[in-house]
Amino acid sequence: MITTVGPGTAPGTYSATNTVTDAGLKGEERTDTSEQSSTDLLSAADIPWNLVVWNDPVNLMSYVSYVFQSYFGYSEAKSNKLMLEVHKKGRSIVAYGGKEQVEQHAVAMHGYGLWATVEKANSSGDGQGRKGGARG
């Protein structure tokens, strides 16, 4: 932004241009600062939690997909995709949300006999973050 507004502009507009540039810079700085502080202010309760389903050699692929469809209401395609991720990668984030919400999902998964755990988002360092996502 600064490089496009050079000193070669017409003399009458020079100071005005400088003012705009300063304002732009300050604006950017302000944005950065506010993002920083809002991150600091996030409490533990606001950090999303992931529901992770783990692979095991017993549960049938069809059954795992059925559970994702019937419990979460996911489409057959999405359920199969998540099931295959569990099968091939050993684990998949199948839902996320508040801690109590994913804990409730975990108990439901245990009811079905799936091996599920909860973890803070990004705590596993596998970079999946929120991409595993789920319907609210």
């Binding site: 975990a106 108990v107 009811g111």
Partner: peptide, 30 residues
């Protein structure tokens, strides 16, 4: 343990606390 797994992979204390709240009804459901 496979039927009634820990809810957290690396936090035994939190898993136990959760177990106190939920295991009975999980057993009953099964």
């Amino acid at each position: 343990l496979r039927l009634l797994p820990n809810v957290m992979k690396s936090d035994d204390a939190a898993s136990l606390e959760f177990r106190q709240l939920t295991e009975r009804s999980l057993r009953e459901g099964k």
